[in-house]
Nucleic acid binder design. Structure first.
Length: 435
RNA sequence: GCAGGGGUUCCCGAGUGGCCAAAGGGAUCAGACUGUAAAUCUGACGCGCAAGCUUCGGUGGUUCGAAUCCACCCCCCUGCACCA
């Protein structure tokens, strides 16, 4: 039986994690009086969550740590419909068996973050398909639909652009999404006495819908709280890199790539992200910031952030591997790398190209490296060669080596008899291998 | 439809017969400096290791030689007219 941390809301606010909430003081009181049950939904729109879902996921954990019971809802039903909130276009529907496969994956992923062995406030994972699938369309329209005013729904900010804008439009399917999510809340209230829903700020409309529906259908007083959308100071979209989305699944984004992503956080964002994405106390984060500001040179915040979040998602082993790979790559001492590190890098850590004898004997390095995608044009390789900026397994190559590809990629210099780490410039790496 | 302006290498934008693979700026890549940062400076920036090859809306022509001149065509913008 855990005790309730009444300072939770204050902590969330100090972290900048509270965007909007219903019934300010009442919610605060509600949270401090007793252990409550809360939920957050995750729709299966892919076979893995990405770091965009991390803030709500970690917030569930924060509530659990403060003595409350978290429910992670995986949207087996809502995932079949598609949330139109702030989406510019109607989305393609996925088939039921694809969605149900994704549901299974998300369930596992979500389960790693919350604790199922903590007595009274053990976490639960539920699937809204369990209660949605058994309801008939007529029941849904009569019991749920009757409580919603189309007039109000049309005026929601989240669907406005779809209603107003010519050429986009919204199907009835997506338009009814809000009813399904609202029904989830009412249902979780009835089944689990769940009295709080959290979600991203784009979910405000759907959450308020659920609060109202619960009152109307179940006469229950429940609350909603939204979390901020994660933004970057330079205005670019958070969570994307040139190589794509940062996923939580290690087979989609390797621990090394994940670690590197956080290490690259801009100074202007890093302290905010420490508050959002780690469990470090706010005052400790403030200390880090104060220290960084008082010393010139490299701030420690990025490495703290990268280590904390990578450890959280990929565990100690994943973090160790990420650090080891980072160290050897950037220090140039590749001998630290184990064969399994290289195999992981081949799998998803670094872009990989396999070489064959014929290519090696026919093509100059400029062609080989540019065809691997390391540069857009062979000219860039030439430029780099001329500036001693190309290293193969730590050995500097020059323009003289350009026509000597077989020597550069010789058996003797390969790591574990088959790997070559090619570095172009300061941070562009590519793995080459021979069979 | 008439009159006028314009289409240049990723973007903006010079260039009106050879010295033009084409000024300048931006973006991008690399080097120095740094913190795997920012700013700054340097180099590269059609393709090619090279010899060389291919570009300036399209096609054809004039010329020893064309992004530049001529003809026709396509597209964009601006006035005017037509329609209403």
């Amino acid at each position: 039986m855990s005790t309730i941390d009444a300072g939770l809301l204050a902590d969330l606010q100090a972290r900048g994690l509270v965007n909007q909430m219903t019934g300010d003081e009442k919610l605060e009181q509600h949270l401090s009086e007793s252990s409550i049950t809360l939920y957050c939904g995750f729709d299966p729109t892919a076979d893995s969550l990405h770091i965009g879902s991390l803030v709500p996921l970690l917030t569930l954990k924060r509530f659990q740590d403060a003595g409350h019971k978290p429910i992670a809802l995986v949207g087996g039903a809502t995932g079949l419909i598609g949330d139109p909130s702030f989406k510019a276009q109607e989305r393609q529907l996925n088939t039921p068996d694809i969605v149900s496969g994704w549901v299974d994956k998300l369930k596992q992923q979500v389960s790693r973050f919350i604790d199922f062995q903590s007595g009274e406030n053990s976490a639960e994972v539920v699937n809204n398909l369990d209660w949605c699938s058994e309801m008939s369309a007529l029941d849904f329209l009569r019991d749920v639909g009757k409580h919603f005013s189309v007039n109000n729904m049309i005026n929601k900010e989240s669907v406005k652009q779809r209603i107003d804008r010519e050429g986009s439009g919204i199907s009835f399917t997506e338009f009814s999404y809000m009813l399904l999510q609202s029904f989830d809340f009412a249902e979780l209230y009835a089944r689990h006495n769940c009295t709080l829903q959290i979600g991203g700020s784009d979910q405000w409309g759907n959450i308020v819908g659920g609060v109202e529906l619960t009152r109307k259908m179940k006469s229950g007083h429940v609350f909603g709280l939204t979390l901020p959308l994660v933004t970057k100071s330079d205005g670019t979209k958070f969570g994307k890199t040139e190589s794509g989305t940062i996923w939580l699944d290690e087979s989609k984004t390797s621990p090394y790539a994940f670690y590197q992503f956080w290490l690259g956080t801009a100074d202007a964002d890093v302290y905010k992200f420490l508050k959002y994405f780690t469990f470090l106390p706010v005052n400790q984060i403030d200390d880090i910031q104060a220290q960084d500001e008082s010393t010139s040179g490299r701030p420690q915040a990025q490495s703290v952030l990268a280590a904390e979040v990578t450890g959280l998602i990929h565990g100690q082993d994943g973090l160790d591997a990420a650090k080891r790979i980072t160290d050897s790559l950037f220090s140039g001492s590749l001998e630290q790398l184990s064969e399994s590190d290289l195999e992981q890098l081949q799998l998803d850590g670094l872009p990989f190209t396999s070489l064959d004898e014929v290519e090696l004997s026919e093509k100059p390095l400029t062609t080989l490296l540019s065809e691997s995608g390391m540069t857009k044009a062979a000219r860039e390789v030439k430029d780099a060669l001329g500036r001693s900026a190309v290293l193969i397994n730590g050995v500097v190559k020059s323009m003289e080596d350009n026509m000597k590809a077989p020597e550069c990629f010789s058996r003797e210099t390969a790591l574990f008899g088959r790997f070559y780490i090619v570095r172009l410039g300061k941070k562009k790496y590519h793995l080459f291998g021979r069979g």
